[in-house]
Computed example of a mutant assay.
Amino acid sequence: MKILIIEDEKMLAESIKTLLVSKGFEVDTAFDGITGQEYASLGVYDLLILDVMLPCLNGYQIARKIRNEKSGIPILMLTAKSALEDRVEGLNSGADYYLTKPFDSRELFACINALLRRQGPQINELICGNTSLDLFSGTLFCGKNSIRLSAREFDVMRLLMQNPEHNLSKEMILAHVWGYDSNAIENHVEVYVGFLRKKLTGIGSNIKIVAIRRLGYHLEVQEIC
């Protein structure tokens, strides 16, 4: 389960992240509205924890943008703004639950569990063309052929398969797979895309990782002669 926290109070964001990681969640953080919006638009998260008072874009604006994209990701709005009109605006903008600061960690986990339960059974594989990616084993399958991916290969491949119609820039892939604080450079993306291309060819996949100059990478289904 992947959770995105958009919170400009870095100490609070890291504290929540530590709590969630201890419960087995995979967590990313963003500290301003624009970065948070970019992360949320990737469509790879199971839950969004969203502050209201953020630099660049506020939480209400982010929630509206997400809902305008027809995304059904659960949104837990976490904020110090506790007035009735604030809660109403939060819910009307697309939040599923409005939790005010300060909060008890038990209530936070109860809200998260309740929102995730609404999602029903979780998808355990991604499919594109004649190829599937098993999310539990990190294995690519194509007919009777299969190949296990390394952790980085899996993260890059999953990101591409979750966004098959979108060009993902090297910067976006770096931020999502390696993290903003990483020393990784764009060449790392190129190297792992190269690894994945070889593995896809090796199992007879009809999907191709296409590079578009200045825009990034996306998947295309190719006809196999």
Results as ranks from 00 to 15, higher is better:
residue 56 C to E: 11
residue 66 I to P: 05
residue 157 M to R: 00
residue 219 L to I: 03
residue 25 F to T: 09
residue 174 L to W: 10
residue 163 N to F: 07
residue 175 A to K: 15
residue 163 N to R: 01
residue 52 V to F: 04
residue 171 E to N: 11
residue 202 G to R: 08
residue 89 E to W: 04
residue 183 N to D: 14
residue 40 A to D: 06
residue 164 P to D: 08
residue 68 N to Q: 13
residue 84 L to M: 12
residue 47 L to I: 05
residue 44 V to G: 03
residue 147 I to P: 14
residue 24 G to Y: 12
residue 18 T to K: 14
residue 129 G to C: 04
residue 156 V to P: 08
residue 212 I to Y: 13
residue 42 L to W: 01
residue 27 V to P: 10
residue 27 V to T: 05
residue 185 I to R: 07
residue 146 S to A: 09
residue 166 H to N: 13
residue 69 E to F: 04
residue 191 V to D: 15
residue 19 L to M: 13
residue 51 D to F: 01
residue 159 L to P: 11
residue 212 I to S: 10
residue 43 G to E: 02
residue 73 I to N: 04
residue 62 I to Q: 00
residue 125 E to H: 03
residue 87 R to Q: 14
residue 199 K to D: 10
residue 16 I to F: 06
residue 146 S to C: 07
residue 63 A to M: 05
residue 7 E to P: 03
residue 149 L to D: 09
residue 91 L to H: 13
residue 50 L to C: 03
residue 45 Y to F: 06
residue 188 H to A: 14
residue 1 M to Q: 08
residue 7 E to I: 00
residue 193 V to E: 14
residue 187 N to P: 15
residue 189 V to D: 14
residue 117 R to Y: 14
residue 29 T to W: 11
residue 160 L to M: 02
residue 162 Q to P: 13
residue 188 H to Y: 15
residue 202 G to Q: 13
residue 173 I to V: 10
residue 213 R to M: 09
residue 50 L to I: 03
residue 34 I to S: 07
residue 193 V to H: 12
residue 30 A to V: 03
residue 42 L to Y: 01
residue 86 D to M: 02
residue 51 D to G: 03
residue 44 V to H: 02
residue 138 G to N: 15
residue 86 D to N: 04
residue 6 I to T: 00
residue 119 Q to D: 10
residue 99 L to S: 06
residue 169 S to E: 13
residue 24 G to E: 13
residue 184 A to M: 12
residue 31 F to T: 04
residue 111 C to E: 14
residue 134 D to R: 00
residue 209 I to Y: 13
residue 66 I to F: 02
residue 170 K to S: 12
residue 135 L to F: 06
residue 184 A to V: 04
residue 5 I to F: 00
residue 22 S to C: 10
residue 194 G to C: 08
residue 71 S to E: 12
residue 21 V to T: 13
residue 167 N to L: 12
residue 154 F to N: 04
residue 154 F to C: 05
residue 32 D to G: 00
residue 87 R to T: 02
residue 78 L to N: 05
residue 10 K to F: 01
residue 138 G to D: 14
residue 110 A to C: 14
residue 79 T to P: 06
residue 27 V to M: 04
residue 215 L to T: 10
residue 123 I to R: 08
residue 202 G to K: 07
residue 93 S to V: 04
residue 73 I to D: 07
residue 190 E to M: 11
residue 47 L to N: 11
residue 148 R to F: 06
residue 135 L to P: 04
residue 92 N to Y: 01
residue 4 L to W: 00
residue 42 L to K: 00
residue 69 E to A: 07
residue 14 E to A: 02
residue 130 N to R: 01
residue 197 R to M: 11
residue 77 M to C: 05
residue 218 H to L: 11
